[in-house]
Every structure is written in C-alpha cells, then in structure tokens.
C-alpha cells in the first residue's frame, strides 16, 4: 500500500485518478482503518488530506460557512460561530463516537462512508449543506443529499474528492436540531436519526427541511414531513402530523441494531422532539 500526503487538493485528485488499484482518501480514518483491519478493503493507495490547507480550515464567509473536509469533530465543536449558527449540525457531528473519535472523525468522512446511520448527514441535509467537489474535470457543487446513493456508495466519480462542505448563512429566525436514538448514551450507532431545520416568520414556520437517518438505504429528505409543519406554530396537531409523516416515510429493515417496526415508531417520536428544539432555537414560542 502506498501512502501519500499531498499539499493541495489538485495533487490529491491527480494521485487518486492515476491509481489503478483501490484508492482511498484518509481524513480521520475512523471508518477506513476499521474496514482495513477487518480485511473488507485492501487499498493500493491512501491519500491523506490532512496536510491540505483548504481542507483543514473552517472559513466564515458572507454567504455562510465553509468547513474543510479534514476538519475534525473536535475542531468543529470548538468553533463558536458555527455552533451558534448551526447547533444541530455541530451536535450531530459531535455525537459520532467518543472524544477519541472526535479527535479524528470528519463530516466529509461520515458522508463519504455513506452509512445510512451516519449522524452528521441528516443534520447537514436538513441545514441545506452543499459539497464542494474537485475532480479531474474541475470543480462542481452538489447538495449533500445527492452524495449518498446507497449503503457504502456515493455519486462521486473516480478521482473526485469533496474539498469542503458549505453551510448557508443562518438567521436569528433559523433553528436546527438533530437527535438520534441509541440504546447506550454514547459509543453507539443510530437506530434512528432525525435532523430538522426551520425558519420562522412572525412565529410561524415559513421554511423547513426534515431528514431521517437509519430508516432507509440512505438518509432521506422528507418534504412531505416538512409540509406538515410549514405554516404552523408547531402546535400539537402539527407535531402529530409531523410524526405520522416521518413514520410513513421510513423504509427500514430489521437488523442487529433494531427492528423495522421500532424504527418506524421512533422516527415519529424523535421528529416531534427534534422539531420542538429547532422551533425554540428559531425563536418560536412554546
């Protein structure tokens, strides 16, 4: 196995494009090294992106935030402005693994690992995050919900890497939240995850995005669920409708971590709780 740690994204793309064998990007490595240890993958090339400046920084811009692909969960959690603007995204990312894992894991790694149960992804999708992608043909941008195509697979072409994720500017009237259900308090994989962001206007939900994790082959954006709360003050009827719409949208399986029936039930329960937090964060009156 060859290990390279280029200084620019362009070099990284060139290395990955040229390699004939299995080639992987290593950022935090918290998923990749586990898969290597178990023999699931045997890379011919690893490209370490942690020495690429564009990937290791969080930039605050006019239009929002740009989070480099190699920024760790711990660094994300320490960024005050980002935490204030998108607390749901930061909390979701900080739920991944332990403090030890947080020292390494990244949102882009979580995204590209393409697990249906990835914690940061539903929050990112709910927040309307976009991926800045660099490939041999140049740069492109894609909504985060367009990246994961199935368990373990993404829409990235060979040689393409995500350099950063961008999050839109958040207003005082915008709130987001993410909750997951796990049997343990920590060190666990989501049985169900729900990310919701919403923007209020005069106390009424004007815009909303609802994304569910671990209830389908990919995290799913559920416009029908968002519709149940748009135009409401998140009253009990809206919450009940939201829960029902989320449960309806689930297409889960039975596996070692949970049953389909449980996931369907708890998706609705969590959606209510998440929406309530996001609503409060957006300045909504309980």
């Amino acid at each position: 196995m060859r290990y390279e740690s280029p200084a620019t994204t362009k070099e990284a793309v060139a290395l990955l494009s040229k390699e004939k064998g299995p080639a992987f990007v290593i950022a935090g490595g918290t998923d990749l090294l586990v898969r290597m240890k178990s023999g699931l993958v045997e890379p011919a090339l690893l490209v370490d992106v942690k020495r690429i400046p564009a990937m290791t920084t969080i930039k605050v811009m006019q239009t929002g935030f740009r989070v480099g692909a190699a920024v760790s969960g711990a660094e994300l959690g320490a960024h005050k402005a980002l935490g204030k603007a998108w607390p749901g995204v930061v909390e979701a990312t900080n739920l991944i693994g332990s403090d030890q894992i947080q020292g390494r894991c990244t949102m882009v790694g979580n995204l590209c690992n393409a697990s249906p149960a990835a914690d940061s992804v539903p929050a990112l999708i709910a927040a309307g995050a976009k991926a800045a992608i660099v490939g041999k043909q140049g740069r492109r941008t894609a909504a985060v919900e367009k990246i994961i195509t199935g368990p373990g697979s993404t829409s990235l072409a060979k040689g393409e890497v995500i350099e950063a994720l961008t999050l839109p500017k958040s207003s005082r009237r915008t709130g987001d939240a993410y909750l997951r259900f796990t049997p343990r308090t920590e060190m666990d994989i989501a049985v169900v995850g729900v990310g919701i962001s919403m923007t209020l206007e005069r106390g009424i939900i004007k815009k909303a995005r609802v994304c569910l994790g671990a209830v389908a082959p990919t995290p799913i954006l559920v416009p029908a669920a968002a519709d149940t709360i748009i135009g409401t003050k998140l009253d009990d009827a809206a919450l009940a409708a939201l829960a029902a719409a989320c449960s309806d949208a689930c297409d889960p399986i039975d596996d070692k971590r949970g049953t389909a029936a449980y996931r369907i039930r708890v998706a609705g329960v969590l959606a209510r709780r998440v929406a309530t937090i996001a609503f409060q964060r957006a300045g909504g009156a309980a």
Binding site: I26, L33, V34, K37, S98, G103, R104
Partner: peptide, 25 residues
C-alpha cells in the same frame, strides 16, 4: 476498532485512539 479506548494517546495534544491512526501519520 476505536471502541474501547485502551490505546488512547494524545497526538499533537488531541486525544485519539492509536489503533485508528496509521504509524506513518
């Protein structure tokens, strides 16, 4: 696999599991 923490070290001051870091890193 990063689940037990027995291999914890700090790397540039950051707490990590040394089983989830390559030696070369």
């Amino acid at each position: 696999t990063g689940d037990c923490g027995a291999c914890s070290i700090t790397l540039d001051g950051q707490l990590v599991c040394s089983c989830l870091v390559l030696g070369v890193e």
